[in-house]
């Protein structure tokens, strides 16, 4: 059943107009980013407001690696670039993990925002990183596919991979530990959950996956600058997708990103002058009307149960 569904999904770009392939790309990317964020944010309750840091770091480390060391081998470069982006993000996360994960709640959120701003400013202002000039990534053409179809399928594979990882974690021993941290970290620690280790592991994994997705996103753009990858909207959107779909669930990011992308890109695409206003209004309405997300709506009804915490 699910295999049939996947094959159908993979064939979509050959049946619809390029614009809708772009929309599909965006939904997949958003869902995968939301899933990568939720490993720490949704499962353990550590809401990062700066995950765009890893999109940017992944994109630029892979971009520099591919343009400097991998000239003339775009496909191999892309494959290795994914690894480079992921590993660089994992290392960066490992460096800041221990100190930054001692902070909780809003302080952690803000510290992550700070980390992403520092990285963005450094990328933009240190010439070696070419952040302000921009970086042209090698064009990838494979299997005779059009670029938008190719990246759609690459993103589809990436989303499935991230989804499987998230599923395995959520339903494993570590997932139970993370939920315990989310509900009450001190109690969890007292009961013998290795809270520090779990948090650091998830932070690193989440960073690495976000970094690899950043590499794919960068390639789908073709040309990146600091402002196109280190975008605060990315950080906030990752939260919004989860919140809209259902925080801490696996289906949530898919539902949230699909609704949000379709609303903002397709429905509101023509209303550019009030686009931001409506996005903001939607956000407000969403938190007030459905504090547990779309999944919560099915369970509790509109304006139904109160959600605390």
């Amino acid at each position: 059943m699910s295999i049939v569904l996947l094959i159908v999904a993979a064939a979509v770009p050959f049946m619809v107009m390029p614009f809708y392939v772009r929309v599909g790309q965006l939904i997949l990317l958003s869902a995968a980013l939301g899933l990568a964020w939720t490993l720490l944010g949704g499962f353990a309750g550590y809401w990062s407001f700066g995950h765009a840091a890893f999109i940017g770091l992944g994109a630029f480390s892979a971009g520099l690696f591919e343009t400097e060391l991998m000239k003339g081998q775009p496909l191999l470069g892309f494959g290795l670039g994914l690894i480079v982006g992921g590993v660089v993000c994992a290392l960066a996360a490992a460096v800041v993990a221990w100190p930054i994960l001692r902070l909780r709640g809003i302080y952690f959120a803000v510290a992550m925002l700070g980390v992403s701003q520092v990285l963005a400013e450094l990328t933009n202002n240190v010439d070696v990183f070419k952040g302000s000039m921009g970086l042209v990534l090698p064009r990838i053409a494979a299997f005779g596919l059009r670029p938008e179809a190719l990246f759609y399928d690459v993103l589809l594979i990436a989303t499935v991979v991230v989804g499987c990882i998230a599923f395995a974690i959520k339903n494993g021993r570590i997932g139970a530990g993370l939920m315990a941290i989310r509900e009450d970290e001190d109690t969890a620690r007292m009961l013998g959950v290795p809270t520090e280790r779990y948090k650091i592991m998830m932070f690193i994994l989440s960073a690495a996956l976000t970094g690899a997705l950043g590499v794919i996103y960068a390639h789908s753009l073709g040309y990146i600058t600091t402002s196109s990858v280190y975008r605060t909207e990315f950080s906030l959107n990752m939260i919004v997708y989860n919140l809209l779909g259902g925080m801490g669930t696996l289906v949530g990011p898919f539902l949230g990103s699909a609704v949000m992308v379709i609303l903002t890109q397709v429905v509101l695409g023509r209303l550019l002058s009030i686009h931001m206003f409506i996005t903001g209004a939607l956000l407000v309405l969403l938190v007030l009307a459905a504090p547990k997300g779309i999944i919560g709506l099915f369970k509790g009804g509109l304006f139904g149960g109160r959600a605390k915490g």
């Binding site: 809401w47 709640g105 809003i106 959120a109 906030l236 939260i239 919004v240 919140l243 931001m276 206003f277 996005t279 903001g280 209004a281 939607l282 956000l283 407000v284 938190v287 007030l288 504090p291 109160r306 959600a307 605390k308 915490g309």
Partner: peptide, 17 residues
Amino acid sequence: RSSHVASMLVTFGVALM
């Protein structure tokens, strides 16, 4: 209805508006 962290998103939405 929600939490303090979620109220942050409400204020962000208002900022956009």
